[in-house]
């Protein structure tokens, strides 16, 4: 059984908080998938920067509520369709971590459709010039295919063990005083981008070697977008050939952080850059240093 992407969507509007962005993307994604929303058994939210720096409840139940999905089965008098919601956090790698989690739920029969949602926006819900990420909400609907060799095939996760973390983002509860709902502190190591590129390349090479994958056989590369040409540099460094495509959207969208892969996939799907049997290489990396790769057959 394969785990496949049934639909995807993005939503961008600088004046909306992260929950609003995520809900708008999710609504469109559900409509595109053509599935009854009450058949969604799992909602996983993987955004990092959240409205008011809320830590409880998870954001996913707040999204479930706004989407009106199986809100109160007891009152409805039926337990035939239930939805379970929670958050996964791992920066730009969170989308692939959530995909892996959803895949295991689909494979073990605990799930029919899984809705992966993500967004990042400044916790103040207002534009902040120091916030380094684009305000993007993204949603991807996962379902299963009877064909085992379709959809997500293999995943690869890795972190660096050298003590360098690249950057740290935190809510300094004491220091922010009464403005805790509106602040985040970023600490970026001076050579973060160089180190991230090198670490990501090592991870990608390790993954493609472990899969005996010829880079020339990759039809499409989707990556996180920490800086200009990050995707293109990965593509050229690992030896993808001229017929392979790389979706590098930094010039148009900046860094959509946890929505990078959702945005990239949605761009490719919307612009008819994907055809059946295409092999897609998903690559994300970020603070930690952390990386995640996955091979997907369309």
């Amino acid at each position: 059984m394969g785990t496949i992407i049934k639909s995807s969507s993005i939503y961008m509007n600088g004046s909306t908080g992260s929950i609003g962005l995520a809900v708008r993307a999710a609504e469109d994604c559900i409509e595109k998938a053509g599935v009854d929303r009450h058949d969604i058994s799992l909602i996983i939210y993987s955004g990092i920067y959240r409205d008011d720096n809320i830590v409880e409840p998870a954001i996913a139940p707040l999204i479930q509520k706004r989407l009106g999905i199986n809100l109160d089965p007891v009152e409805q008098g039926s337990f035939d369709r239930l939805t379970f919601s929670f958050d996964v956090h791992n920066g730009p790698c969170g989308f692939l971590a959530a995909s892996r989690v959803a895949q295991s739920s689909l494979m073990s029969g605990a799930c029919r459709y899984a809705l992966l949602v993500s967004a990042d926006a400044h916790p103040s819900k207002r534009h902040n010039p120091d916030f380094p990420f684009s305000n993007v909400g993204s949603a991807v609907m996962l379902g299963y295919s009877e064909e085992p060799q379709r959809g997500f095939l293999e995943f690869h996760f890795r972190t660096s063990g050298n003590g360098r973390v690249g950057y740290v983002a935190k809510a300094e509860v004491k220091r922010f005083g009464t403005a805790g709902r509106e602040c985040i502190a970023f600490e970026v190591e001076h050579d973060y981008h160089d180190e991230l590129l090198e670490f990501t390349l090592d991870s990608v090479r390790e993954f493609i070697n472990s899969q005996n994958l010829d880079p020339a056989d990759v039809d499409l590369l989707l990556t996180s977008q920490q800086f200009k040409s990050f995707g293109k540099l990965i593509s050229s460094s690992i030896g993808m050939n001229g017929k392979s495509k790389v979706i590098d959207l930094f010039d148009e969208y900046g860094d959509p952080h946890t929505s990078s892969l959702g945005l990239g996939y949605n761009y490719a799907a919307s612009n008819k850059l994907l055809k059946k049997d295409d092999r897609i290489l998903f690559v994300a990396s970020g603070a930690g240093l952390s990386s995640a790769c996955a091979l997907y057959v369309a």
Binding site: I54, V173, K174
Partner: peptide, 18 residues
Amino acid sequence: TLAEFAELCFGMPSTEHS
């Protein structure tokens, strides 16, 4: 998740004290 009741408990920074 009985999300009908998702907003009955919130954890977040206080606006009265740090």
